[in-house]
Design a protein around this nucleic acid. Structure first.
Lengths: 234, 234
DNA sequence: CCAAAAGTGTTCCGTCTACACCCATGA
DNA sequence: TCATGGGTGTAGACGGAACACTTTTGG
């Protein structure tokens, strides 16, 4: 282990890693990159990078997000997930990583990022399975990200982060169904989200679908917590 | 800012800081130390210290906990809270800190720790108020710790971490009342905690109080999540 | 008219709240 | 016996699940 010291204090490198989720093709997908260098050259990993001098952790996460997805962090939900610092998690030496969770609507192809690294969307079911190896401890980070995202849909309004505004109640329900991998009763779901104060703001507009009655369009409301919560049953 | 580099990568120091709560004298208290050196010499701060070589973050937190409270981390609830890394949060240079939340029963006087630093229990109301300055960004960390602890009583069984086994339902209720700063209906609370499967294990013993009917004694059950949750009302 | 999706009404049922009430002990 | 806290019973309010039903569009 190569570890320098400042005084009697060991020094370590700090990275941020991003668990970026979107709902695409009826499934929850995560953005993974193919590593272009050692260690773990060629294997899949979460996007991320070193925290720079004078940069706060949230800033570093937002910068990496912009570099990887070409989307301004303003338009996404971004929150700190957890910090991982097992001594041997990176063979290059002591590196601890602050993991972030990002949720966004179906984004433009991420390959347009400034990094030349190949980035692509991978269904979470695939990424999480034992058949898909991920670099470092990224599998564990991803699993925790999924759990956090699923839990947060229950008692917060973050699900709207997956929707492009304006959106319909059915689109929002689709987000819940995909993230939770369940079916929800459309009528009861409609009542819950429209009655939760501050969750949805009606635009007064409607969208005519290919089939069926036009649906009212909404934007995100001011509320961040969802009362009453929308609980997963079973 | 004194920051060394390894290759092109900036190196930082990493600390763990502990938000240690207990219920003492009918109020929620936090363990604070009086700093014995610069910066912030003499002011109150959360206990903590540098992460050592080859030490995982959880290990470092458990070690600091043992040093500060002289209590084995096995007997306490210990979980990662959040990581703080604002560039100027420590005047000595770039130091990021991984904050941990620890919950335990009314502990022996913490001054017996191996560190010579003066440690003492401070009511959270006092510590959190604007009249009590805390070192670094510790006020923010403390506030987030309080919020986390309060929220976790709702949907997990961590409240039992505040109780010495065996304990009565009234003692557990007292924990909820103190942490939430509310009064709870004793009869309804009793039903909720005894019906939640895996929360409490009856010992078959009773404790005869100074006054009133003897109360059944319980130990912690296997459950970590609380279903149904015990919600704060209002 | 039919199919399909949006949205509303209604019934049933379980949980929470409030509070009356009984139980077990020491004084 | 009384006072006190432990614990149970119960009626009403509230919210969720299930599902029948109405609305609004395109074909």
């Amino acid at each position: 282990m190569i570890t320098k010291r400042r005084g009697d204090v060991s020094l370590v490198s700090v990275t941020v890693d991003l668990v970026i989720f979107t709902v695409r093709s009826d499934c929850l997908q995560v953005l993974l990159i193919e590593r272009g260098k050692e260690p773990h050259l060629g294997s899949l990993a979460l996007p991320g990078g070193y925290v720079r001098d004078g940069e706060d952790l949230d800033e570093a996460a937002a910068r990496e997000l912009l570099e990887e997805t070409n989307v301004d962090a303003e338009r996404l939900h971004l929150e700190q997930l957890r910090t991982y610092g097992a001594p041997a998690r990176d063979p290059r030496g002591r590196v601890i990583t602050v993991a972030y969770l990002a949720l966004g609507p179906d984004l433009p192809t991420p390959t347009a990022g400034t990094d030349a690294r190949a980035a692509r969307w991978v269904p979470v079911k695939t990424a999480i399975s034992d058949e898909t190896p991920l670099a470092f401890d990224h599998k564990e980070i991803l699993r925790e990200g999924v759990e956090r995202a699923r839990a947060k849909l229950e008692y917060t309004t973050v699900a709207t982060a997956f929707c492009l505004e304006p959106f319909t109640v059915a689109e929002l329900r689709h987000v819940y169904e995909v993230v939770w991998d369940t079916k929800l009763d459309p009528s009861n779901f409609h009542r819950k989200v429209t009655r939760a104060i501050g969750f949805l703001v009606p635009t007064g507009q409607r969208r005519v679908p290919q089939l069926g009655r036009p649906a009212a369009l909404y934007r995100r409301g001011y509320a961040t917590t969802l009362v009453p919560a929308i609980l997963r049953t079973g």
